[in-house]
Write a protein that binds this DNA or RNA. Structure first.
Lengths: 327, 327
DNA sequence: GGCCACTATGACAACGTTGTCCCCCAGCGG
DNA sequence: CCGCTGGGGGACAACGTTGTCATAGTGGCC
């Protein structure tokens, strides 16, 4: 800016005025300044500007589990979209379910003075954010609730979704319905297990421990579990999958197998309708989740200081065939 | 920092020393300072730090077409990963194929003084980046080349891939092979068309205009085109799809149709192996693309100032069945 | 001619840090 | 007792901006 001022033969304040379209600059002066800017390839330093103005940095931080996962990339896209409308840039990072990494990312973003934080929690402890929140940085948790702070949270109806999945299968005559879920220390996995249990009870088919397999799953463990479920004394005739990765593992395990249990998966995924049979799912909208969380964040930035809210987004059963197989 | 200094009864410089682990602070003083930091929830302002030090901002900018697209979210993930190892944060944005938006994002990132830029070009004009590049900001283009500047570029072997696709189909007896590609003003679409043409010539089956359908495609246009191709005088018996969205459109159009042409798609996608028939694809690795580009960017940041490089990553035909149907 | 209003411009401080340089004081040798 | 050394700490400027206030010049009006 100094260089521009020198080249144009004006003070740096005048350059600042031109750059900011402030009134009171003679057109011919402005022209000289613009020419100098162009010639030198000058670009105003936003950090310095924000520092001086004490205003927002125009950024929001997004901590998620893995951008590579289509579900979270959908969330990211929605966040970006709304941030753009509100003139903000998104800085994001993946925690890979590592609480330490989540914390590191969130605090790094705070050091960069983001205007707000969106976090998909990996851990259960979020008191490290208390100073930031007290300092006025709004924080919204999404997909899972925060550990030990009260804060805005946007979730999906995990329990309602699995209740619906079980109800759907029971309505098609199934009485031995299994549940394959993720590790129960993950909030969504645990909620979905609760929904499964409640669904079983409501359907009058009872909750049977031996039909449940939680825990981190890979393709092998899923295959083993399925075999066990299908060969037990009273075999399972239907399966509820706790998330889309598990659904896919199940589909791979069943490839080429004649005896297929009915299946309802949590999370929709692309091409589910083109498989044979097409896969019935409990769908929830990644972009709706991202949008709701971001809207909430911006409401806080706009001065809304009502008590922390918890928003639960509905899910929707999409019947496609795999869950409509009769027992 | 001022407040911390006051509370600890020291000067702000001493606080700075403590925060930066600089030597020459008495342990008991340091302890007082740390206590004050903790009590006030102080977090050093990175913008101010970087401004003062004139050092890097520790960020890199990533402009892509759409984070929501699995291909680009894979790229994003890879970029993030490497940036992390090198202590950088990623700021990203989606251009949606809009050159204006691409430019807006890139320049915004420059104003934020990113250490480097990774761009999936939407437009053909990139001279707007010349001042930035001259000012020392390294720029790497990925997936598509830049319009009117010479710069580092990482591409995939689009031509080789489609040549291979055609060759594969011809080897299975097909002589009427169609090509459905994206709008030819998109670099990759045009390259893949060239590869298709070359493949046809090499296979000795000639290039026939009427078997090619370029242009933006939606599900309807793909269905119409397929119908035309299958009912023409000498019908097409095989199809090459120019990208994964077109492949999916084709699959949807063919759902439930008895007379299926052989199919090879450009871009791999999840579950391709579980469809019936499983879909043969030309696979290229999103994370390899992201990694190669980011590595190149960091090499520049490390001082490599050799002439701009153009890296072409190999692709790989993954035979799964849909391309092995005999004519 | 003197005064006022107004326009165009500049000097200077400040944002939150850190680099440079300088000072104070205890401890030590001569 | 003097001077030197070195550890601990502070004052001040500077990074690139912008907000505040001041000032020089110009034209109009009485």
């Amino acid at each position: 800016m100094n260089d521009v001022a020198r080249l144009a033969g004006v003070s740096i304040k005048t350059v600042s005025r031109v750059v900011n379209d402030e009134p009171g600059v003679h057109p011919s002066t402005a022209e000289r300044v613009l020419a100098a800017i162009d010639q030198l390839g000058f670009r105003r330093n936003l950090s310095a500007r924000n520092l001086r103005r004490g205003s927002s940095t125009g950024t929001i931080g997004l901590v998620l589990e893995d951008v590579g996962n289509p579900f979270y990339s959908g969330v990211t896209r929605a966040v970006e979209e709304i941030a753009r409308l509100r003139g903000r840039q998104v800085i994001s990072g993946s925690s890979d379910e590592d609480p330490g990494r989540e914390r590191e990312l969130a605090l790094e973003f705070c050091s960069r003075r983001v205007d707000g934080l969106l976090i998909v929690p990996a851990g259960l402890q979020h008191s490290y954010l208390v100073p930031e929140m007290r300092a006025g940085t709004p924080v919204v948790f999404l997909d899972r609730p925060a550990g030990d702070v009260v804060a805005d949270t946007v979730l999906v109806d995990n329990i309602g979704g699995t209740v619906e999945a079980v109800t759907h299968l029971a309505a098609h005559g199934h009485r031995r319905i299994a549940f394959l879920g993720d590790a129960p220390d993950i909030f969504t996995a645990n909620e979905r297990l609760r929904g499964y249990r409640e669904g079983c009870v409501r359907a009058g088919i009872g909750y049977h421990e031996e039909l449940v397999a939680m825990g981190p799953h890979d393709e092998n463990s899923v295959a083993t579990t399925l075999k066990r479920l299908q060969t037990m004394r009273e075999p399972a005739t239907a399966v509820v999958a706790g998330n889309n990765r598990i659904t896919v593992h199940i589909l791979r395990s069943l490839a080429g197998v004649a005896e297929r249990p009915a299946l309802v998966g949590f999370d929709d995924f692309e091409l589910a309708d083109l498989l044979s049979p097409p896969v019935t799912v409990i769908a929830h909208d990644a972009s709706a989740l991202g949008k709701a969380a971001t809207d909430l964040l911006f409401a806080r930035l706009d001065g809304d200081n009502s008590p922390p809210r918890r928003v639960v987004l509905p899910v929707r059963l999409v019947p496609r065939g795999s869950g409509e197989v009769h027992a």
